[in-house]
């Protein structure tokens, strides 16, 4: 593999996954606020000024007093904190895929957002079904897409034709991973075009 191809592969892999910047920044900001508060209280205590909320000695006394609290309260608070921690650990270790697919574009590396795929499938489905695109909604996952159609009251939709057209359109996208399609036609139609 050439360095060029490796570079493209590297970029595509990065673009398919979340950088987790938002979560990291939020956590860092919370930590900064907490640390700034503790630091400020320490300095205020050193200067002999009244504390903002709690002086360092009051914090220490509070920590020493923890075991005297009601066991039920301790268990509940501890469990909530631990669950938040668990959520963060899971967030840190899961791939965090973005709603995107790889798409062929000649020699360049290309990625398409799932909303574009959904919109193209909606257009195919609605034009074959003969309804307005606003009556069709697509939900695109990593390997499958569901297109939901709301028919016009009293006008039957050709389900087979829609299914065929949508499957063909999905094949024609040339995205990786490939998308399997499913067409759902609402039982209740709506009046008007």
């Amino acid at each position: 593999m050439t360095t060029d191809a490796r570079l493209k592969q590297h970029v595509v892999r990065r673009e398919l996954h979340s950088p987790k910047s938002g979560l990291a920044i939020v956590l860092a900001l919370i930590a900064i606020v907490a640390l700034a508060w503790v630091g400020t209280e320490s300095v205020l205590a050193a200067l002999g000024r009244p504390a903002l909320l709690l002086s360092p000695s009051a914090m220490a006394a509070g920590a020493r007093g923890l075991p005297s609290l009601q066991p039920g309260v301790l268990i509940a608070v501890g469990a909530v904190i631990a669950v938040i921690g668990l959520v963060l650990v899971i967030a840190a270790l899961t791939p965090g895929r973005r709603g995107r697919h790889i798409i062929g574009a000649g020699s360049t590396a290309a990625v398409v957002n799932d909303e574009v795929i959904g919109s193209a499938l909606v257009r195919t489905a609605s034009s074959v079904a003969g309804i307005s695109p606003d009556r069709a909604v697509a939900e695109v996952g990593q390997r499958s897409a569901t297109i939901r159609l709301t028919p016009v009251s009293g006008v039957a939709l050709d389900r087979a034709a829609v299914e065929r057209a949508v499957a063909e359109a999905a094949d024609g996208l040339g995205v990786t991973p490939a998308i399997r399609t499913r067409v759902v036609i609402d039982k209740k139609g709506k009046v008007g075009g």
Partner: peptide, 22 residues
């Protein structure tokens, strides 16, 4: 990811310690 993991583990440790205390 390392930072998020670290914060998560710290919270699990702190929460676990408090819960064990109770």
């Amino acid at each position: 990811r390392f930072f998020i993991l670290l914060v998560g583990l710290l919270l699990i440790a702190a929460g676990g310690a408090v819960a064990v205390l109770g």
